[in-house]
Simulated scan of single mutants.
Amino acid sequence: MLTVHHLGISQSERIVWLCEELGIEYDYKRYNRREDNRLAPDEYKALHPMGIAPVIQDGDLVLGESGAICEYIDRKYGGGKLSLTPDHADFADHLFWLHFTNGTFMTNGMMQLMLSMADAKNPMPAGFVAERTSKAWQMVEARLGEAEFFGGSQLTLADIMMVYCLTTARMFREGTLDEYPNTAAYLQRIGAREAYQRAWEKAEPGTPPNLT
């Protein structure tokens, strides 16, 4: 049986949402962050050598890394429902946004977060990261002005990956969607999905999703 280990307020919410979208059976275990430093508890860190979320177990397999987990579950349990084949018109866009998520967008956000916590006297790194981050958000806004979903005309793994960056990840740093109306409208569409609502209630019960 597939087991999803979810760390509260973390990227592993993606995996809960994916399983709900696919309508598959899975065991679910939720872990609270530590009170003293807001990091994962030792019990969660022991699941995988990296000690970070997300992590799944499937029999003897223990797998980390959001993108790998999403592709694994979609192919093994979802029949590739949320992936596009090479003959699909949106195939390239689906691939781009699927990998842009953690390859660029999340990386920019993590660099910003680390710089904000560091006592850096050299302004160059902050300016470099700010420019990269601004460009990435502009790309997101432009994409959601031309397509209903990141992958094109239908929900794909690209959306499963990107939504966390646009919602929960913003809890860790300042920022609104005032300048990004297309993104805001997209998140309202996502928030209206029954599978997303079920997943969020499991992942963060009693906490409203950061959709605005």
Rank of each mutant, 00 (worst) to 15 (best):
M1D: 14
T3K: 15
H5G: 04
L7I: 06
I9T: 07
I9M: 13
S10R: 05
Q11F: 07
R14A: 03
I15D: 07
E20W: 01
E21P: 14
I24T: 07
E25H: 12
Y26F: 15
Y26S: 08
Y26N: 06
Y26G: 08
Y26R: 05
E35P: 05
R38M: 08
P41R: 04
P49E: 11
I52Q: 15
P54N: 03
V55K: 02
G59H: 09
L61P: 05
V62R: 10
G67D: 12
A68I: 14
I69R: 07
C70S: 11
Y72M: 04
D74V: 00
G78C: 09
G80S: 09
K81D: 07
K81Y: 06
L82R: 12
T85E: 13
F91Y: 15
A92Y: 07
F96P: 00
L98W: 01
T101D: 11
N102F: 11
F105K: 08
T107S: 10
M110A: 12
M111H: 12
M111K: 15
L113M: 15
S116L: 09
A120D: 09
K121W: 06
N122P: 04
V129I: 15
E131L: 04
T133R: 07
S134D: 14
W137V: 12
G145P: 05
A147T: 03
A147P: 00
F149K: 00
S153H: 06
L157N: 15
A158T: 01
M162G: 04
M162S: 08
V163T: 09
Y164R: 01
L166R: 01
F172M: 14
T176C: 00
D178E: 13
E179A: 15
E179S: 13
N182G: 07
N182M: 06
T183A: 08
A184E: 03
A185W: 00
A185L: 01
L187S: 00
I190P: 01
Y196M: 07
Y196F: 15
R198K: 14
W200M: 04
E204G: 01
E204N: 14
G206D: 11
G206L: 11
P208I: 08
